[in-house]
């Protein structure tokens, strides 16, 4: 085997073979259709515009929730890692929210705010903020005290210090939080849509679940997985390579 892409490709091909074998053994397209049997429904949904409409709706919610959760989580994590007093006050809250089941938060948000877009996005954001905060706090605790001292003596402005001294030290933690964050967020978005929205992949899966249409459930789920993989390869990984440039140079 040679080349960087060949092993993942072979591994994915293995999964496809496993699926084919399982579908052959099941011998019931109602339960598990063959992989190629999805092509027809996929093209039909694509041409009607339904697939793109629902993909877009879910993606928009993911982007909103991701941006909010990363923004709030980074700010909280930075404060809690830097200032012990704030950490002592907020840590119990963090533990409570970390252990609150996603479903409880979603249901409560819908009950209190209403069955609308705001509630959906707040529910997802609240589910993710504690994880981001925990990861970023670890990073903020590991700041190099010598660089702090240097910045202090040279009276480096707060903005420069944040941008060029602190955030570069946090970069590996931000990447880790973003990675884990994106994966968790889109799963929670689907649950939120399943429970109380009338658009999005989660809503479509709910619909076809009630019709017991396994093929359509798979078409929608796999399409969104493909979108998330594309985001990972076109945004996250290149960004990570960029911030790691100084390490490999």
């Amino acid at each position: 085997m040679s080349g960087r892409g060949s092993i993942p490709a072979a591994s994915l091909f293995g999964l496809l073979i496993l699926w084919t074998v399982a579908a052959t053994l099941t011998a019931d397209p109602q339960v598990l259709p063959q992989p190629w049997a999805l092509a027809g429904p996929f093209l039909r949904e694509l041409q009607s515009g339904d697939l793109l409409y629902h993909l877009g709706a879910t993606l928009l919610r993911v982007i909103w929730a991701f941006a909010l959760a990363m923004g709030i989580g980074c700010a909280l994590g930075l404060l809690m890692g830097r200032f012990e007093k704030i950490d002592r006050w907020l840590d119990p809250w963090l533990v409570v929210f970390l252990n609150l089941p996603a479903l409880v938060l979603i249901v409560l948000c819908y009950l209190w705010i209403g069955l609308n877009e705001t509630a959906a996005i707040i529910a997802v954001t609240l589910n993710k903020v504690p994880n981001v905060t925990t990861v970023i706090r670890e990073g903020a605790r590991a700041f190099d005290p010598n660089l702090d001292a240097m910045a202090r003596v040279y009276r480096i402005s707060a903005w420069t210090r944040l941008r060029h001294v602190l955030i570069p030290q946090l970069a590996p933690f931000i990447t880790a939080a973003a990675r884990g964050g994106l994966a968790v967020i889109w799963k929670i978005v689907l649950v939120v849509e399943f429970l109380g929205r009338s658009s999005g992949i989660g809503f479509q899966i709910h619909l076809y679940f009630q019709l017991f249409d396994v093929a359509m459930v798979l078409v929608y789920a796999l399409s969104f997985i493909a979108v998330m993989l594309a985001v990972e390869w076109t945004f996250l990984q290149p960004w990570e390579r960029r911030v790691r440039r100084w390490r490999v140079a």
Partner: peptide, 12 residues
């Protein structure tokens, strides 16, 4: 200030 270690910003 000059420290024992260079204390530079390695990412810049």
């Amino acid at each position: 200030i000059v420290f024992q270690e260079p204390t530079l910003l390695p990412w810049r």
